[in-house]
Amino acid sequence: MHDYSKTELLNFKNLKSGNEKAFEYFFNKYYSHILGFCIQFIYDKPQSSGITQDAFLNLWLNKGKIEKVSGVESFLYTYAKSKCLNAIRHNQVKERYKSKTLNEKERELDFDILNSMSFDTLALSELEDLISKSIENLPEKTKVIFLKKRFENKKNQDIANELNVTVKTVEAHMTKALKILRLNLSDYLPLVLITLILSKH
């Protein structure tokens, strides 16, 4: 289970009573995550920024309805998810490829993936704990490379230069990190699969 600090709980209480500083605290905490999440499905930063801004705006407007501190993150992800689904449904997602079939396939798959993601507070905090634990438990070098790549957004070449290794090594570590993550997340897979099969028929 997630442990929320006193600061977090205090900020949540203040957010609910309409304190802008508390709102800013949650904004700083989640903005980059929600934006990153949207970009993974919309592939366009300005459009994703719009959705992210809307998510926070609606968090502010609906702050009274959120019951638990964990509900903040859950609200933001759920909002972003539904807006991304809408964008895909209405063909407002950037076409990345020349091939029409490929664009369609990507959209279809992204739609299914988004649809299968649940952001109720329990699932979200469990999944996140699991992910952060998995990252924590990666072999040291793999972890360093994974964190540089994923959280500092560095290019393979830059990481290679920085750590004095080849680009191939960086790629190998990234692949390893993903394999481990995949293994640890396998508990969540059956659920995904069932949802997928159900939604297909």
């Binding site: 904004f27 903005y31 934006l35 993974q40 992210t52 990252i135 993903l178 997340l185 396998s186 897979l189």
Partner: peptide, 21 residues
């Protein structure tokens, strides 16, 4: 799907937060 989900949930966009705020 599992990989993409893990990726989407750990993705962080480095962007000018002050401007967005």
């Amino acid at each position: 799907i599992a990989l993409k989900k893990a990726w989407a949930l750990t993705e962080v966009s480095n962007t000018d937060k002050d401007l967005a705020w």
